[in-house]
């Protein structure tokens, strides 16, 4: 992530941590079922696995693998990304699936099954003096 003026804030509509120490990994916020242990990206009230009501907030693993992906070549209306860019469905190490862009490699290097790690993505946008930051996944493993 590039250094710039202003405090980094998470883009509206996505829930994840922005560590003060750049050496630490950001993590998606999720929900965990206290009954069956299933985890979900984002906030859920009811477990899809067992129906338990009342899930706990949790932080999800920043590690995952690419379940599937595509290289987008046509710019969707309103998008801030310039094609070509990669959209992937990522299966996180602790179970849930999430959808994300993939950065940090050539778009043609992305493969199904590729290990990825969560990273921050600077949108180059400001909001009330704060830098708006989104998240992405890049190739990598626990050791990188």
């Amino acid at each position: 992530m590039t250094a710039g003026a202003g405090t980094p804030v998470a883009i509206k509509g996505a829930a994840f941590t922005i560590p003060a120490d750049p050496a630490e990994r950001p993590q998606l916020r999720g929900s965990a079922c206290p009954s069956c242990g299933a985890r979900f990206a984002g906030q859920r009230a009811i477990c899809l696995g067992c129906g338990h009501r009342g899930l706990d907030e949790c932080l999800l693993s920043p590690l995952g693998v690419v379940w599937t992906f595509t290289i987008v070549h046509q710019k969707p209306p309103g998008a801030i990304l310039e094609p070509p860019y990669v959209i992937a469905q990522i299966r996180l190490q602790d179970g849930p699936f999430t959808q994300s862009i993939v950065t940090g490699c050539s778009v043609t290097d992305v493969r199904v099954g590729m290990p990825v790690v969560m990273t921050l993505y600077d949108t180059d946008r400001m909001s009330d003096g704060d830098r708006v930051v989104a998240f992405a996944f890049r190739p990598g493993t626990d050791a990188t």
Binding site: I11, A14, W67, T68, L81, I87, A88, V112, T123
Partner: peptide, 28 residues
């Protein structure tokens, strides 16, 4: 639901991409 426009801003919610990802999984 994309009330905050996050998926739109990040270019995530495009219909051909949804089918393209089904195709890529099938190819793999």
């Amino acid at each position: 639901v994309d009330s905050d426009g996050y998926a739109s801003l990040m270019g995530l919610n495009v219909m051909p991409a949804a089918y393209a990802m089904m195709a890529q999984r099938h190819m793999s």
